[in-house]
Each structure stands twice: as C-alpha cells, then as structure tokens.
Design a protein around this nucleic acid. Sequence first.
DNA 1: ATAAAGTCTATAATTTAAGTATACTTTTGA
DNA 2: TCAAAAGTATACTTAAATTATAGACTTTAT
Lengths: 150, 150
Amino acid sequence: MRLSKRGEYGLRAMILMATPTEDGHPPIVQIKEISQREKIPAKFLEQILLALKNAGMLHSKMGVGGGYYLARPAKEITLGQIVRVLDGPLAPVKCVSQMAYEPCGCPDEETCGLRLVMSDVRNAISALLDGTSLADVNNRVDKVREMLKT
Amino acid sequence: MRLSKRGEYGLRAMILMATPTEDGHPPIVQIKEISQREKIPAKFLEQILLALKNAGMLHSKMGVGGGYYLARPAKEITLGQIVRVLDGPLAPVKCVSQMAYEPCGCPDEETCGLRLVMSDVRNAISALLDGTSLADVNNRVDKVREMLKT
DNA sequence: ATAAAGTCTATAATTTAAGTATACTTTTGA
DNA sequence: TCAAAAGTATACTTAAATTATAGACTTTAT
C-alpha cells in the first residue's frame, strides 16, 4: 500500500506551494527552490510539476522571475486529486476503483469477500485524501506549531 | 496505493481456506484446487502459500491427501497480518509505519504536513485490515448471499 | 544579448512484480 | 516396496514500472 516517490514528491511540492505568504497572492516558486528545500532531484521534480501543470493544478511563468504557482486556491485542491494524477487510482484493487474500474476476475463480484473489504478500504482512503485540501494540511501544521510553542 | 498480485492472491487463498465446512475442522486444501478455483498460476501460488506457512499462518501436510490448512481459527487471522507478510507494511510512507519505521527525510517530522495526513491514512487502513478477520469476511459474504436470495 | 527560468522528449539505471523451472522430500496406499 | 500425490526450496527469467538523468529548446526580464 505504498505511495510512490513521484506521488510523495508531488504532494510535498504542492503543500510547499500552498504555504501562505504575507500578501494574499499565491506564491510563485522555482523548481530549484523546491528541489533544495525538500531535497528532491531537480530533474525528477521537473517532470512531476509538468504533469501537475498539464492536469490543470499548476500554472507557470517562464523566464527570469518565473516559476510555478497554484492554479486554484489551496482550499480547492485536494490531496486525492494530486495523488490520482501522479500515482493513479486510490483503490487497492481495480475492481473497487471509482475512477478506473476493471473486473478483477472473481466468479461473482457481488459475493467476493476480498472486494467487499477492499471497497471499504478504498472509501476510507478516499474520504481522507479527497476530504483534505492543501489549505487543510497547512492549517493543521500551523496548529501543531502552536501546540509545540507552549 | 495498490495491492500486489501476490497480496491479492494470498488473501483470496486464505479467504477460501477459511470457508467453513460441515464438520468444524479447518478444511485441508490443495494448491491445485485453490489455483483452479481462483484462477491463480499454481507455481506462483505455491510460493505465496509457502511464505504464509513460514510466517506461521498456515500448516501443511505432505504426501497423498495432503494440502494446506489454517494454523489458527479463522477469527484469529486478520487481513492485516496477511498483507504485511506478502506486501510489507500498510503505511503509504515509511515514516508513519508502525512495523517498519524509517525517517522520510523531511527537516522536521513533527511539523511535516504530509506525515500528519499519511499517518491518518495508515491508521484508517490498519483499522479496517487489522480489524477484519477471515471469519468476518466469510460472515459478510454469507450476509450478502442472504440478501440476494430474497 | 544574456541569463534565468520553464518545456519537452529521450534514455539509462534500478528495482519490483510476476511467473517458470527444476530437483528434492514426505506420505499414503496399492 | 514402490509409484503417485502432495508440499519444499531455490534459482532463474522476463517484463514492467519506478526513479532518475541528459540535452536541446523556448520564453521572458533586464
């Protein structure tokens, strides 16, 4: 049940880009900066951000002073969306996937025990990842920081 | 977040072996039979059952009339145990694994947003898989069968 | 014009997954 | 006692996915 490096790096990068700045604007961030701060190979990150851009979750600006920034407000981008773009469906087995259903070959799907359970697992994962936005993540981090300060 | 074929086949085989028979005994089942009923390549299944045996979840009997059977009652074997043997830790990232923790390299683990969320995901998966025994699965299948009958 | 950025595509390196092969041991029963 | 039925053990192969690197190109600000 592992998240790939691709997925992990992409999530880290998106969370970083969703970190609010003084002014209200979505911060514009360079690949190089993300790469250094999160210790992600720059060329690998490049591909990941490009995929996210092509999926419509990021915008970019070329040239001097350019970089990437969120295409939508942080509270409208969920972790589930990001993971699906980078790692594919959330479901542990294809036959319980909402996004990419495929039969799994059991004689009778309706009475397949594995399917019944894995369907619950997929729903639990989806509830968490589709229910958590980038803004939620950063709010949570802030709360933890508050707690630790005292 | 995908379950491997190894994990999937192993779960299917275990669920099948946990299917109760008339007498109370744990049924003894041959590789060949499981392989045919579940459409799993026999030689691949062989390795999977061996791993499960070496992990103490199955016993076996060699020779004519031999086969595999559950080492413990079906209600004492959880899906989580099986998945861990065949596919490794449930956690999406190593740094939230209970069984096989490893640092994931973020500057500060306590305030890592990804870690906070993935920890929830791992707990949700664990709650379901460690909370569901082979007996639970078959009871559930029986219930669905009842429902469909009417 | 030049340097700083992203774009695009190819390819290399590594790892993992999935499946096959083969030689062996144990047990039963004709 | 020996042949057939079963599991044991390990090695090997193949294919695919993952992770990463390389290089040539485009856009933009100054």
